[in-house]
Design a binder for these strands. Structure first.
Lengths: 199, 199, 199, 199
DNA sequence: CATGAATGAGAGTTCATTCAT
DNA sequence: TATGAATGAACTCTCATTCAT
């Protein structure tokens, strides 16, 4: 489900080749980063000829872009589907984070790819985080409306929550799995429901 | 406060040259990223000969490393000095974030440099965030001890707070300055003091 | 009137495809030169599949050769037909040049194609100019025989006349049309009939 | 005496390297043409590293341009010096052509290089021929003024003469040396002094 | 210590040609 | 015949690093 390219394959064989290149690129970029990934390394992993790369992509940047958008969409979709069951705003956030943590553990390369987009494809990078923030913000507003959450929550609240989630995902999803996703989500939930002050 | 190098300058002239290279490197890496920064571009900006670079650094990676550590230290120092006046754990966090936001606005390149370290110098990257997390965690423990904060705050709480701060810094420090540092810090403070749930 | 190919089309459909390729090639080679013309650009312009090119031509060089010979023949034919009415040797040359100038204006790409043959297809290049020189030389001999022209005109005279014509064609046919073909032909005619010395 | 480059060598060693590259380029371009000359082939012939090429030139086009201008200037200079002794306009043209023919024989590669500029560096190509035409035209005007030549000679006369010279140079200078330069110059002189009509 | 020319491995990209469908 | 995906050699250009002066 990569972004639209001018070079869409017209045959079944072509579709397979393009898929192979995209999959190989995901692994290479995730493992070695944008700078240390070469097009040869991608095509070798994909087991296609070097030139075939250019049948489907105009440049290294272009596959990267396609990939970032693809993955950004996946993350969003995954979290969305995880929240369907929650009937309370705070529970919804908890589910979202739990899902995100699990996703991060299964797709550690996705993490690196989106992060590296800050340099290799700044547009997509901003789009990714701004999109996530908007989705969180909408959930906050809905929570305020239903009375679950305090009133007057701003976009900044959404960014704060996203930051919590992303860093917890990095530390407890990608770097180590020493704690369960639920445990971590509970920490965030505690902060959001009553803060950390003594009472 | 550059990292220890085997090639520490022995003369005053040498010290100046090294400083010029480090300053130029900070600008170049911050502006163009690691991959798109070349040694010539650094030496040209520093107005020294290409060869002089290798008098002080063994490789491109090495300046980068020196820089990341330099900046990581600066961030920490800055936040620490800002918290000296606060007599309450939550106020201390508020001050730390305000200081961090101001710092981010003045040193937008630092953000990119530390982030890019995820790929160009993973060691320093982890060291930076783990160090920050530890410092926050220590403050939390102190807060628990003095009774300002809830008991049983974990390292994960520290990571959550750091994530909030970092993302608020990216969004409201680097990307735009549409809101004041105090406003943003107030949002974080609200979350930490009582959460976002309706009461 | 393309050159003999081992791959002459056997069906009407084939004839059309080959014609489309040749016409497209003429435009591409004329516009971008041999080196900067790609087979894809030819087939795209001709609106046929890339592979179809090789149904009719063995290589890029071969279309080029076919084209050069085609155009070389056209130039000759055009000049020949223009001279039929002239009953005097000098008038015949004047008509030939006028016709050539008009032809150059209508087929500016021909110029570039034949010229580039010096590098891409030296054989055809020499054949073209030697053929032209021979035809001019034959006309000169006929003129000598009929008493219109001086005796003892050599092959070198023919080359000199051809050079005049070619450069006048480049300057006043292809590069600009600031003067009429007749005006230019008059200049050449003056030189041939009485030289440029003061009398 | 190559055209000014932004990358002028600053040391004696650098000057030698640049000269070696230029000389090698002249031979390669002259022998194989622009399209079939690679930068490796140039640097190999010059016995310098591939990368050294880019220390002095930005691209293949740039060396080519430098070369064309260098050679264009040489041709003009050579012809000019040959004409100093002539005291009559027609004799001056005869000397110019004789000199040009000799020059062409000694520098056959120059011929090809300037010709190929039509494609590889159109600007220089036009500049070369327009410059030559202007110089011839000025001589014609001077001849008219001194009474040696007919009045009212135009720029087109200059182009006609240049075309004669160039084609005679190609045929009897570069392609074969079957006739002496003087013989050929005599043919052109005959045409210019009295034309080819019977009297 | 400073300088900048020299080096060459390596990367991205193009494109003529082949071939399975 | 027609199609267009696949191939990989060849090429241009970049740049970290070395080294003689």
């Amino acid at each position: 489900m990569a972004a639209e390219t001018a070079k869409t394959p017209r045959t079944e064989r072509g579709r397979k080749t393009m898929r192979a290149i995209l999959d190989a690129a995901a692994i290479e970029f995730g493992t070695n980063g944008f700078g240390d990934t070469s097009i040869v390394s991608i095509t070798q992993r994909a087991k296609v000829a070097l030139g075939s790369f250019y049948t489907y992509f105009d440049s290294k940047e272009e596959v990267f872009r396609a990939l970032v958008q693809d993955m950004s969409a996946q993350v969003g979709k995954h979290a969305a589907s995880a929240m369907s069951g929650a009937d309370n705003a705070l529970e919804r956030e908890r589910s979202a984070l739990t899902a995100f943590l699990q996703f991060a553990r299964e797709h550690k390369e996705i993490y690196r790819i989106i992060d590296e987009a800050e340099f290799a494809d700044p547009e997509s990078y901003r789009a990714h985080y701004e999109g996530s923030a908007v989705r969180i913000f909408e959930r906050l507003q809905e929570g305020s409306a239903t009375g679950d959450l305090a009133e007057e929550l701003s976009e900044a609240h959404a960014w704060a929550i996203m930051g919590m989630n992303v860093f917890l995902g990095l530390r407890y999803g990608v770097w180590s799995e020493e704690k369960s996703a639920e445990e971590i989500a509970a920490v965030a939930n505690q902060i959001l429901s009553r803060g950390i002050a003594q009472r």
